[in-house]
């Protein structure tokens, strides 16, 4: 069974057996979303912005976790004190594997609303246990994700340099994951609209709107029946 823990914004932890993968422990308005003492085995930031990297270096150091990101992100975390021997640069479409987990990054991008232009953001295709999870991070592009077979797809909906609701919904319609989870909303209406539209037009995808500290448990019962429960 895979546990998906939501911290708020774009921060999630995927827990399977003894392995915990922390995604985008960002800082928002100077505040960390994930506590410094969170224990993870792998920490990943999909881009080098503060709202993605946040206190990743501190968490990685405290929990002696691997930190994964693109070159710019790894450089930034290194400057923040992460141990060099725990850093790993992700290359697009080159899988990173540990027992029970295979992470394949894809080069996407987000809009830099401060400097203008685009900055690279990695979309992650995570095979963990028997589950296949798509995590787009802070992306404004869908890349190849519409072609992937995904049990869970986690997509931004805020429209602030990332997907607006319509593109998140559109990707769910095309990719047809079993569960679609919105993140990084600008307004409380965003996840509600996402949920409403996916329910109507998703053709099999179930929208699950998570509140901070909620846990979604997903599993394959008897190997062929997909189950989920939001706690």
């Amino acid at each position: 069974m895979l546990k998906i823990v939501y911290f708020g914004k774009t921060s999630f932890a995927l827990e399977y057996n003894e392995t915990t993968i922390l995604l985008n422990p960002g800082k928002w308005d100077g505040e960390s979303v994930v506590p410094d003492d969170f224990n993870a085995r792998v920490v990943i930031a999909t881009n080098q912005s503060d709202d993605a990297v946040g206190n990743a270096a501190t968490i990685a150091v405290n929990s002696k976790a691997w930190f994964l990101g693109n070159q710019g992100t790894v450089d930034k975390v290194s400057e923040q004190g992460a141990k060099p021997w725990l850093l790993h640069v992700l290359q697009p479409e080159v899988p990173y594997e540990i027992p029970d987990v295979k992470i394949t990054p894809y080069s996407l991008s987000r809009i830099d609303e401060v400097e203008g232009g685009r900055i690279e953001n990695l979309g992650l295709y995570i095979e963990i246990g028997e589950m296949k999870v798509g995590y787009l991070g802070d992306s404004v592009l869908r890349g190849p994700f519409e072609q992937f077979d995904m049990d869970v797809l986690i997509v931004p909906v805020g429209g602030d340099g990332v997907f607006p609701v319509k593109d998140a919904v559109s990707l769910c319609i095309d990719a047809q994951p079993r569960v679609g989870i919105p993140m990084r909303w600008s307004s409380i209406d965003d996840p509600l609209k996402f949920s409403k539209y996916v329910q109507q037009f998703g053709q099999g995808t179930v929208p699950v709107v998570m509140a901070p500290n909620q846990v979604l448990e997903v599993s394959w019962a008897a190997g062929n029946e997909f189950r989920y429960e939001l706690n």
Binding site: V165, K166, V169, S170, D174, K193, Y197, F201
Partner: peptide, 10 residues
């Protein structure tokens, strides 16, 4: 009131 061409928009 209007949508982008060749796109899917709620």
């Amino acid at each position: 009131p209007s949508v982008s061409s060749f796109d899917k928009t709620p």
